[in-house]
């Protein structure tokens, strides 16, 4: 690779050095585009959660910091989210048209487990508030509510997509399309699981 454009005297034109290195990738492929778009969506989301975590560490150095005793419900909710992600992964791996029912079952399980996660998160909020850690009570508590709240909000948006996938899987949409939807959803789910684990670890660190 040359840093400069290639000058081709007498040819009447020039071609930048990288000119044809990347051949054309064919007409627009919807599934590739959707996949690329989803992965790209994870960029701002990573940026956002990453900044919340760095804000947490900066704020922790201020004088009044006190760690929040994390309610035990968070361990339960983490397990539920993990299970939900696993169920989505199992659904994603089903390719045979004959196993559509199995796919649907896994899909349903994933959704229900995710709902369980959300309910457990609400439960943990109540538990923490019950211990006297109100939203504005301490900075550690505020961060806990902020982090888990932002995360839950994104999972709620994911549930909307899940409803769409489920409908598609039920009404007999073409299997390839259903598989694409499941795949996209599964990626999003794994991402949210990873985000939650990072947030949880951050909160556990004190």
């Amino acid at each position: 690779m040359s840093f400069w454009a290639q000058h081709a005297p007498g040819r009447g034109t020039i071609e930048p050095a990288w000119g044809n290195r990347q051949p054309w990738q064919g007409p627009v492929d919807r599934s590739r585009v959707a996949l690329r778009g989803l992965l790209l969506l994870l960029v701002p989301l990573t940026s956002m959660f990453g900044l919340v975590v760095s804000a947490y560490f900066m704020r922790r150095h201020m004088g009044d910091w006190q760690a929040v005793p994390l309610p035990w419900q968070l361990w339960l909710s983490s397990a539920l989210l993990l299970a939900s992600s696993v169920a989505f992964e199992r659904a994603r791996r089903i390719t045979a048209p004959a196993r559509l029912a199995e796919l649907q079952a896994n899909l349903a399980a994933a959704g229900l487990l995710a709902l369980g996660f959300l309910a457990t998160q609400v439960w943990s909020w109540q538990a923490l508030a019950g211990q006297g850690y109100a939203l504005a009570g301490s900075a550690g508590g505020s961060f806990f509510y902020l982090m888990s709240g932002l995360h839950a909000l994104h999972l709620v948006c994911g549930m909307v997509a899940w409803l769409k996938v489920r409908t598609a899987a039920r009404v007999g949409t073409e299997l390839a399309t259903v598989q694409l939807y499941v795949r996209l959803c599964a990626i999003y789910w794994h991402f949210l699981l990873a985000v939650w684990l990072v947030l949880f670890a951050t909160l556990l660190s004190g």
Partner: peptide
Amino acid sequence: SIMALLAFPALFVAAVMLIMDNTLGTSF
């Protein structure tokens, strides 16, 4: 556009936390 995808979340986070400080009494 790539920079916007990376940078705007910082403003979003700041805005959410500032709204919380203002309306919910948190101390970010």
